[in-house]
Amino acid sequence: MSLKSLCYCLLLLVVHFSLSASSAAAGKVSAIIVFGDSTVDPGNNNFTPTVAKANFPPYGRDFDGGVATGRFSDGRLVTDFLSEAFGLPSSVPAYLDPATRSSSSPRSVIPLSQQLEYFVEYKERLKLVKGESVANKIIAEALYIFSIGTNDFILNYLVLPLRPAQYTAPEYVAYLIALADAAVRDAYDLGAWKIEFTGLAPFGCVPAARTLNHDEPGECNEEYNKLARRFNAELQQAVWKLNDELAGAQVVYTETYSVGSAIIANPSDYD
């Protein structure tokens, strides 16, 4: 399976839903502001005290210059392609990089509450650099992408023992949805209007999940995939509710599960 093919397939989905949310969206996206986990981290973890690093080969082997940037990928992320599609930089520096703290696209894999605090900080920095009027325009016309769940399930629930002792699987899904709902509402209160929430791909088929599948070693873990589908169904309901309750906001759900499933089932079609 080609990672670039997967990126472009998911990119097309995100762009389609982002643009269709409003006829005025095209050409008026001032910045891509992403909240999420390692699947969308452009390298913030390089500047945090964590053992989970992606600053060494083979990470980054397909990135410009073959440099490992801290992205958990061999090249650019879907959000990088999306940024380029809207006429923004083809790859956006990590917000926590000291050299780029005035960047117009803060992104991190720190807990959502901390990410929102960085967003507040970013708004103030933007006002200092651009002036309040321009800063407010950038904030209002930005596209806000939320991508959570993969790490929350694979690492925090399915591997580590603490969360399973606290929550059943349905309870944990509800817990994550509540966190997601609250984060979107907080971002809305801070000026986010165009919001996209990415559903989970079949994470039961990623290498780590296949390795943990003791019943069928090497095969997709269908119990994990059931969790992804349940999360996606409840996330869609949360998105509908957010649209009803957040006046003026345009919140869209991007379905990626079927795309990932198709690629896994017929990888040669995406070479």
Rank of each mutant, 00 (worst) to 15 (best):
S103R: 09
R107Q: 15
Q114V: 12
L13Q: 15
L82Y: 09
T150V: 11
R107K: 15
P202A: 08
G204P: 00
I33L: 04
Y167P: 01
L3I: 14
K123V: 09
L88V: 10
F81Y: 15
E234R: 12
E245Q: 13
T48G: 04
V159D: 09
D64E: 15
T69E: 08
I154V: 14
E245N: 06
Y157W: 04
P93G: 07
N225C: 05
T256N: 11
P207F: 05
I177D: 03
C220R: 02
V51N: 09
S2G: 04
F203P: 00
V109Y: 13
S261E: 15
A174V: 07
G70K: 03
G60T: 03
N213H: 06
G27M: 10
T79V: 12
K28T: 11
Y224Q: 03
P164Y: 02
Y257G: 02
A68T: 07
A233P: 11
Y95M: 12
A26M: 11
S108E: 04
F203Q: 00
S2W: 13
G248V: 06
N232I: 07
S38I: 03
L96S: 07
A165T: 12
G204L: 01
D186L: 08
L190W: 07
A54I: 02
W193H: 15
S104N: 13
F17N: 15
Y253P: 00
L179E: 15
I154Q: 08
A247Y: 10
N136M: 06
T69A: 06
Y188V: 02
T198S: 07
P58A: 09
L190R: 14
G149F: 01
S105Y: 12
Y167S: 04
L88W: 01
I263C: 03
S90Y: 11
A182L: 14
I139H: 01
A169H: 10
F197N: 10
V239G: 01
P267D: 11
A209G: 01
Q250I: 05
P57T: 04
E255L: 03
